[in-house]
Design a protein around this nucleic acid. Sequence first.
DNA 1: AATTACGACAACCGCCTCTCA
DNA 2: TTGAGAGGCGGTTGTCGTAAT
Length: 291
Amino acid sequence: MGRSPCCDKASVKRGPWSREEDAVLRNFVQRFANAGNWITLPQKAGLNRCGKSCRLRWLNYLRPALRHGGFTEEEDSLILSLYGDIGSRWSVIAAKLPGRTDNDVKNHWNTKLKKRYYSLTAAPSTPPTGGDAIAAADSPHGADRSSLPPPPPSLVNLDAALATADDGGELTRESEQLYAELMGLIEPQSTTRESTGEVMSSPSSFGTSPAASSFAAGSSATWPVDVHDTILWPESSGNGMVEFDDPCVAHIFGPPSTPDSFLDLLASSYDEVIATQELLYLGTNWSEDLN
DNA sequence: AATTACGACAACCGCCTCTCA
DNA sequence: TTGAGAGGCGGTTGTCGTAAT
Protein backbone atom coordinates (compact mmCIF):
# COMPACT_ATOMS: atom_id res chain seq x y z
CA MET A 1 0.00 0.00 0.00
CA GLY A 2 1.42 3.40 0.90
CA ARG A 3 0.72 6.82 -0.42
CA SER A 4 0.55 7.18 -4.15
CA PRO A 5 2.93 9.82 -5.46
CA CYS A 6 1.39 12.97 -6.91
CA CYS A 7 3.49 12.57 -10.05
CA ASP A 8 6.14 10.42 -11.62
CA LYS A 9 9.27 11.97 -10.20
CA ALA A 10 11.44 10.12 -12.68
CA SER A 11 9.79 11.68 -15.72
CA VAL A 12 9.09 15.25 -14.58
CA LYS A 13 11.63 18.00 -14.76
CA ARG A 14 13.12 19.19 -11.49
CA GLY A 15 15.36 22.01 -10.37
CA PRO A 16 15.26 25.69 -11.23
CA TRP A 17 12.49 27.00 -13.43
CA SER A 18 13.30 28.51 -16.80
CA ARG A 19 11.85 31.77 -18.10
CA GLU A 20 9.84 29.81 -20.61
CA GLU A 21 8.28 27.66 -17.91
CA ASP A 22 7.53 30.70 -15.79
CA ALA A 23 5.80 32.36 -18.72
CA VAL A 24 3.70 29.29 -19.44
CA LEU A 25 2.69 28.82 -15.82
CA ARG A 26 1.98 32.49 -15.22
CA ASN A 27 -0.16 32.84 -18.29
CA PHE A 28 -1.99 29.63 -17.70
CA VAL A 29 -2.87 30.32 -14.08
CA GLN A 30 -3.98 33.85 -14.82
CA ARG A 31 -5.97 32.86 -17.87
CA PHE A 32 -7.69 29.77 -16.56
CA ALA A 33 -8.23 30.37 -12.89
CA ASN A 34 -10.61 28.28 -10.79
CA ALA A 35 -10.90 25.68 -13.51
CA GLY A 36 -8.97 22.75 -12.16
CA ASN A 37 -6.40 21.67 -9.64
CA TRP A 38 -2.67 21.87 -9.39
CA ILE A 39 -2.12 18.17 -10.00
CA THR A 40 -3.66 18.30 -13.45
CA LEU A 41 -2.30 21.73 -14.36
CA PRO A 42 1.07 20.59 -15.76
CA GLN A 43 -0.57 18.29 -18.27
CA LYS A 44 -3.13 20.86 -19.36
CA ALA A 45 -0.54 23.61 -19.62
CA GLY A 46 2.03 21.44 -21.32
CA LEU A 47 4.53 21.71 -18.49
CA ASN A 48 6.74 18.76 -17.63
CA ARG A 49 6.59 19.56 -13.93
CA CYS A 50 5.03 18.16 -10.80
CA GLY A 51 1.78 19.88 -9.88
CA LYS A 52 3.02 20.65 -6.42
CA SER A 53 6.08 22.21 -7.91
CA CYS A 54 3.85 24.41 -10.08
CA ARG A 55 1.85 25.47 -7.06
CA LEU A 56 4.99 26.30 -5.12
CA ARG A 57 6.46 28.24 -7.99
CA TRP A 58 3.32 30.30 -8.37
CA LEU A 59 2.78 30.99 -4.68
CA ASN A 60 6.38 31.76 -3.82
CA TYR A 61 7.64 33.44 -6.93
CA LEU A 62 5.23 34.29 -9.74
CA ARG A 63 2.23 35.54 -7.80
CA PRO A 64 1.71 39.28 -8.36
CA ALA A 65 2.61 41.80 -5.65
CA LEU A 66 5.18 39.58 -4.02
CA ARG A 67 8.22 41.17 -2.52
CA HIS A 68 11.54 39.40 -2.33
CA GLY A 69 14.43 40.24 -0.05
CA GLY A 70 14.97 43.62 1.48
CA PHE A 71 13.17 42.99 4.74
CA THR A 72 12.62 46.20 6.64
CA GLU A 73 13.48 46.67 10.28
CA GLU A 74 9.78 46.81 11.00
CA GLU A 75 9.24 43.47 9.32
CA ASP A 76 12.18 41.97 11.16
CA SER A 77 10.76 43.11 14.47
CA LEU A 78 7.35 41.74 13.60
CA ILE A 79 8.79 38.36 12.68
CA LEU A 80 10.87 38.20 15.83
CA SER A 81 7.94 39.09 17.99
CA LEU A 82 5.55 36.67 16.31
CA TYR A 83 8.10 33.90 16.55
CA GLY A 84 8.29 34.56 20.25
CA ASP A 85 4.53 34.15 20.41
CA ILE A 86 3.72 31.27 18.11
CA GLY A 87 7.00 29.73 17.02
CA SER A 88 7.75 28.55 13.52
CA ARG A 89 4.27 28.89 12.07
CA TRP A 90 5.61 30.66 9.05
CA SER A 91 2.36 30.83 7.15
CA VAL A 92 0.72 32.65 10.06
CA ILE A 93 3.66 35.01 10.37
CA ALA A 94 3.75 35.62 6.61
CA ALA A 95 0.05 36.46 6.68
CA LYS A 96 0.93 39.48 8.79
CA LEU A 97 3.46 40.68 6.22
CA PRO A 98 1.83 41.77 2.96
CA GLY A 99 3.70 40.58 -0.08
CA ARG A 100 5.77 38.05 1.84
CA THR A 101 5.51 34.30 1.54
CA ASP A 102 6.04 31.76 4.25
CA ASN A 103 9.06 30.52 2.34
CA ASP A 104 10.52 34.00 2.23
CA VAL A 105 9.99 34.55 5.92
CA LYS A 106 11.38 31.14 6.72
CA ASN A 107 14.50 31.73 4.66
CA HIS A 108 14.99 35.16 6.17
CA TRP A 109 14.66 33.68 9.61
CA ASN A 110 17.14 30.90 8.98
CA THR A 111 19.76 33.16 7.45
CA LYS A 112 19.51 36.26 9.58
CA LEU A 113 16.91 36.48 12.28
CA LYS A 114 17.56 33.22 14.07
CA LYS A 115 20.94 34.35 15.33
CA ARG A 116 19.53 37.70 16.29
CA TYR A 117 16.62 36.15 18.12
CA TYR A 118 18.70 33.78 20.16
CA SER A 119 21.25 36.41 20.98
CA LEU A 120 18.42 38.47 22.41
CA THR A 121 16.57 35.69 24.22
CA ALA A 122 19.52 33.49 25.16
CA ALA A 123 17.17 30.52 24.93
CA PRO A 124 18.38 28.60 21.91
CA SER A 125 17.10 25.24 23.07
CA THR A 126 13.47 26.11 23.66
CA PRO A 127 11.84 27.47 20.56
CA PRO A 128 8.10 28.00 21.06
CA THR A 129 6.85 25.12 19.01
CA GLY A 130 4.73 23.30 21.56
CA GLY A 131 1.00 22.89 21.76
CA ASP A 132 0.60 25.96 23.90
CA ALA A 133 2.18 28.07 21.24
CA ILE A 134 -0.09 26.67 18.60
CA ALA A 135 -3.11 27.20 20.77
CA ALA A 136 -1.92 30.73 21.30
CA ALA A 137 -1.94 31.42 17.62
CA ASP A 138 -5.50 30.24 17.31
CA SER A 139 -6.77 31.97 20.36
CA PRO A 140 -8.34 35.38 19.84
CA HIS A 141 -7.12 36.44 23.24
CA GLY A 142 -3.55 35.36 22.87
CA ALA A 143 -1.78 32.66 24.79
CA ASP A 144 -0.73 31.51 28.12
CA ARG A 145 2.79 32.70 27.58
CA SER A 146 4.19 31.20 30.72
CA SER A 147 5.52 28.26 28.74
CA LEU A 148 7.05 30.39 26.01
CA PRO A 149 10.39 32.10 25.93
CA PRO A 150 10.17 35.83 26.44
CA PRO A 151 10.19 38.06 23.39
CA PRO A 152 13.42 39.83 22.63
CA PRO A 153 13.90 42.75 25.03
CA SER A 154 13.86 45.31 22.29
CA LEU A 155 10.48 44.09 21.13
CA VAL A 156 8.43 44.38 24.28
CA ASN A 157 6.69 47.53 23.14
CA LEU A 158 6.04 46.03 19.73
CA ASP A 159 4.52 43.01 21.38
CA ALA A 160 2.00 45.22 23.09
CA ALA A 161 1.11 46.80 19.80
CA LEU A 162 0.60 43.40 18.24
CA ALA A 163 -1.83 42.44 20.94
CA THR A 164 -4.24 44.98 19.52
CA ALA A 165 -3.27 44.58 15.91
CA ASP A 166 -6.47 42.87 14.94
CA ASP A 167 -8.60 45.76 16.05
CA GLY A 168 -6.75 48.49 14.34
CA GLY A 169 -3.23 48.66 15.71
CA GLU A 170 -0.86 51.06 14.09
CA LEU A 171 1.31 48.30 12.70
CA THR A 172 -1.61 46.67 11.02
CA ARG A 173 -2.79 49.94 9.59
CA GLU A 174 0.63 50.66 8.25
CA SER A 175 0.93 47.20 6.76
CA GLU A 176 -2.46 47.48 5.15
CA GLN A 177 -1.54 50.89 3.85
CA LEU A 178 1.56 49.46 2.24
CA TYR A 179 -0.41 46.51 0.95
CA ALA A 180 -3.02 48.71 -0.65
CA GLU A 181 -0.29 50.78 -2.21
CA LEU A 182 1.39 47.71 -3.56
CA MET A 183 -1.82 46.51 -5.06
CA GLY A 184 -2.47 49.86 -6.63
CA LEU A 185 -5.75 50.16 -4.81
CA ILE A 186 -4.82 53.56 -3.43
CA GLU A 187 -2.29 56.23 -4.20
CA PRO A 188 1.00 55.94 -2.32
CA GLN A 189 0.82 58.07 0.82
CA SER A 190 4.02 57.19 2.56
CA THR A 191 7.07 59.24 1.77
CA THR A 192 9.35 57.31 4.10
CA ARG A 193 9.22 54.14 2.07
CA GLU A 194 9.63 56.00 -1.15
CA SER A 195 12.80 57.50 0.19
CA THR A 196 14.16 54.05 0.93
CA GLY A 197 13.25 52.71 -2.45
CA GLU A 198 10.73 50.20 -1.16
CA VAL A 199 7.67 51.46 -2.97
CA MET A 200 6.85 49.30 -5.93
CA SER A 201 4.50 50.05 -8.70
CA SER A 202 1.74 47.55 -9.10
CA PRO A 203 1.17 45.47 -12.19
CA SER A 204 -1.10 47.40 -14.42
CA SER A 205 -3.39 44.50 -15.03
CA PHE A 206 -4.22 44.11 -11.36
CA GLY A 207 -4.21 47.59 -10.00
CA THR A 208 -7.81 48.42 -10.68
CA SER A 209 -9.35 45.01 -10.36
CA PRO A 210 -11.88 44.40 -7.63
CA ALA A 211 -10.54 40.89 -7.49
CA ALA A 212 -7.06 42.12 -6.81
CA SER A 213 -7.05 41.46 -3.08
CA SER A 214 -8.23 37.91 -3.31
CA PHE A 215 -5.97 37.32 -6.23
CA ALA A 216 -2.94 38.47 -4.35
CA ALA A 217 -3.82 36.48 -1.28
CA GLY A 218 -2.95 33.35 -3.17
CA SER A 219 -4.07 30.99 -0.48
CA SER A 220 -7.06 29.42 -2.09
CA ALA A 221 -8.21 25.91 -2.61
CA THR A 222 -8.25 26.44 -6.33
CA TRP A 223 -6.26 28.75 -8.50
CA PRO A 224 -6.44 32.46 -7.89
CA VAL A 225 -9.47 34.26 -9.20
CA ASP A 226 -8.88 35.64 -12.63
CA VAL A 227 -9.34 39.34 -13.08
CA HIS A 228 -12.06 38.82 -15.63
CA ASP A 229 -13.30 35.42 -14.50
CA THR A 230 -12.97 34.08 -18.00
CA ILE A 231 -12.73 30.34 -17.74
CA LEU A 232 -12.35 28.32 -20.89
CA TRP A 233 -10.22 25.25 -21.22
CA PRO A 234 -8.74 24.93 -24.67
CA GLU A 235 -9.58 21.26 -24.80
CA SER A 236 -12.98 21.48 -23.19
CA SER A 237 -14.54 24.45 -24.83
CA GLY A 238 -16.23 22.38 -27.48
CA ASN A 239 -15.02 24.16 -30.56
CA GLY A 240 -11.45 24.49 -29.37
CA MET A 241 -11.72 28.24 -29.15
CA VAL A 242 -9.79 30.20 -26.59
CA GLU A 243 -11.25 33.40 -25.36
CA PHE A 244 -9.03 36.35 -24.48
CA ASP A 245 -10.94 39.17 -22.96
CA ASP A 246 -7.82 40.91 -21.74
CA PRO A 247 -6.68 43.34 -24.44
CA CYS A 248 -3.06 42.85 -23.51
CA VAL A 249 -3.21 39.09 -23.77
CA ALA A 250 -5.27 39.33 -26.88
CA HIS A 251 -2.50 41.44 -28.33
CA ILE A 252 0.04 38.80 -27.42
CA PHE A 253 -1.80 35.87 -28.86
CA GLY A 254 -3.71 37.49 -31.62
CA PRO A 255 -7.15 36.37 -32.72
CA PRO A 256 -8.56 33.17 -31.24
CA SER A 257 -7.35 30.11 -33.03
CA THR A 258 -7.66 26.37 -32.59
CA PRO A 259 -4.57 25.34 -30.67
CA ASP A 260 -3.88 21.76 -29.75
CA SER A 261 -2.57 22.84 -26.42
CA PHE A 262 -1.83 25.94 -24.48
CA LEU A 263 1.85 25.36 -25.07
CA ASP A 264 1.35 25.46 -28.80
CA LEU A 265 -0.37 28.74 -28.34
CA LEU A 266 2.52 30.14 -26.40
CA ALA A 267 5.13 28.79 -28.75
CA SER A 268 3.63 30.76 -31.58
CA SER A 269 4.79 34.04 -30.15
CA TYR A 270 7.11 33.26 -27.29
CA ASP A 271 9.39 36.26 -27.57
CA GLU A 272 6.46 38.59 -27.43
CA VAL A 273 5.12 36.79 -24.40
CA ILE A 274 8.37 37.25 -22.55
CA ALA A 275 8.66 40.89 -23.47
CA THR A 276 5.11 41.64 -22.46
CA GLN A 277 5.32 39.70 -19.25
CA GLU A 278 8.37 41.68 -18.24
CA LEU A 279 6.54 44.88 -18.95
CA LEU A 280 3.59 43.72 -16.92
CA TYR A 281 5.41 42.44 -13.89
CA LEU A 282 8.89 43.89 -14.12
CA GLY A 283 10.37 40.52 -13.41
CA THR A 284 10.39 39.14 -9.92
CA ASN A 285 12.79 41.37 -8.11
CA TRP A 286 10.75 44.54 -7.94
CA SER A 287 13.17 46.79 -6.17
CA GLU A 288 16.03 45.86 -8.47
CA ASP A 289 14.03 46.31 -11.63
CA LEU A 290 12.78 49.69 -10.61
CA ASN A 291 16.24 50.99 -9.95
C1' DA B 1 44.05 34.16 -9.80
C1' DA B 2 42.38 30.19 -7.47
C1' DT B 3 40.17 28.24 -3.69
C1' DT B 4 37.26 28.16 0.25
C1' DA B 5 33.59 29.71 3.26
C1' DC B 6 29.41 31.61 3.79
C1' DG B 7 24.97 33.86 2.93
C1' DA B 8 20.74 34.07 0.37
C1' DC B 9 17.07 31.95 -1.57
C1' DA B 10 14.81 28.62 -4.68
C1' DA B 11 13.11 24.14 -4.65
C1' DC B 12 12.09 19.60 -2.85
C1' DC B 13 10.42 16.22 0.61
C1' DG B 14 7.24 14.21 3.38
C1' DC B 15 3.80 14.59 6.76
C1' DC B 16 -0.57 16.59 8.16
C1' DT B 17 -5.15 18.44 7.32
C1' DC B 18 -9.11 19.13 4.74
C1' DT B 19 -12.67 17.94 1.43
C1' DC B 20 -15.66 15.08 -0.85
C1' DA B 21 -17.71 11.02 -2.68
C1' DT C 1 -18.04 6.75 8.61
C1' DT C 2 -14.20 6.16 5.87
C1' DG C 3 -10.73 6.35 2.49
C1' DA C 4 -8.57 8.63 -1.40
C1' DG C 5 -7.01 12.72 -3.43
C1' DA C 6 -5.46 17.37 -3.19
C1' DG C 7 -3.72 21.35 -0.78
C1' DG C 8 -1.03 23.31 3.12
C1' DC C 9 2.89 23.56 5.72
C1' DG C 10 7.47 23.26 8.01
C1' DG C 11 11.96 21.26 7.66
C1' DT C 12 15.69 20.44 4.81
C1' DT C 13 18.65 20.42 0.84
C1' DG C 14 20.66 22.29 -3.39
C1' DT C 15 22.47 25.96 -6.06
C1' DC C 16 24.50 30.17 -6.98
C1' DG C 17 26.81 34.47 -6.05
C1' DT C 18 30.15 36.86 -3.38
C1' DA C 19 33.39 37.92 0.15
C1' DA C 20 37.48 36.32 2.38
C1' DT C 21 41.85 34.04 2.33
